[in-house]
């Protein structure tokens, strides 16, 4: 499904602050896998997502999705097959547009935006249905500007918008980090349900070790641009938060943190 081959990423190349994060980095993600990625700050988790989405350039290597090299594709072109939910709830929605306008916009992913009516009346029931699945009452707020909703509601809406149209690959970039514990829990459960229902391949970066252990079919721990732990299947089900925390602390002590 997703394959990174010999990916090299150098920040500030040619300057005194030059920093090589990835040196011939390799990663394979199989179809239907839900990969949780943990690691300390600066370990390369978010850079990894940004490289996959094309938000930052790479100095060498290949990024393949379904066997096709997308390393040369522009960011917006890659999002035809990728959906992404950001850490900041305001990144995934338009605050000055209503919930209905946001949903209609998300519905346009993958099709051309011409002079047809922006809001398709016959789709409204479908939008309501999708929002109702969240159980947050958003289906009754179709005409409310999204900027007036809470962070949790916006993040839930962003999640629904991202997965409204068919995508192959879902990227979750610390998408629960800005939410309070209870809302984060709700969003995490929703995420898991949506991924299972729509059979998505997903990668989730998180600082919450418990989420990494509880959710997903594969667990990666990253450090200094490399993978230090890679567990999946049977092995992962036996892993506990304590195991991960132990390794995490060990790495941190080595770093001098």
């Amino acid at each position: 499904m997703l394959e990174l081959k010999n990916v090299t990423k150098i920040y500030n190349p040619g300057t005194v602050t030059e920093m090589c994060l990835f040196d011939h980095f390799q990663l394979q993600v199989k179809e239907g896998e839900f990969v949780s990625i943990v690691g300390s700050n600066g370990s390369g988790k978010t850079s990894l997502l940004n490289i996959i989405c094309g938000s930052i350039p790479i100095e060498g290597g290949e990024v393949l999705i379904g066997g096709e090299n997308i390393a040369k594709m522009k960011e917006y072109q890659r999002y035809r097959r990728i959906g992404r939910v950001y850490q900041n709830p305001s990144m995934g929605t338009c605050p000055n547009l209503t919930m209905l306008e946001n949903m209609s916009l998300a519905d346009q992913k993958g099709s051309f935006c011409g002079l047809g009516r922006g809001i398709q009346k016959k789709r409204i029931d479908y939008y309501k249905e999708q929002l109702a699945l969240l159980g947050l009452g958003l289906e009754d707020k179709l005409h409310v500007k999204v900027g007036a909703l809470s962070g949790g509601q916006r993040q839930a809406a962003a999640l629904v918008m991202t997965t409204l149209t068919p995508i192959d690959f879902l990227i979750l970039d610390e998408h629960t980090a800005a939410l309070d514990p209870k809302t984060a829990e709700i969003i995490m459960e929703l995420t898991d349900r949506i991924i299972k229902e729509k059979h998505l391949t997903a990668m989730m970066v998180t600082h919450n070790l418990r989420y990494a252990v509880e959710y997903g079919s594969r667990l990666l721990m990253m450090d200094k641009g490399g993978v230090v732990l890679d567990q999946s299947g049977e092995e992962k089900t036996h892993t506990t938060v304590e195991d991960i925390l132990g390794l995490f602390t060990k790495i941190s002590i080595e770093c001098g943190n």
Partner: peptide, 15 residues
């Protein structure tokens, strides 16, 4: 309107 409001979202929608 979306582009002026949040162009990150527009990129995420493959536009």
């Amino acid at each position: 309107r979306a582009t002026g409001d949040n162009d990150t979202l527009v990129t995420s929608l493959a536009k």
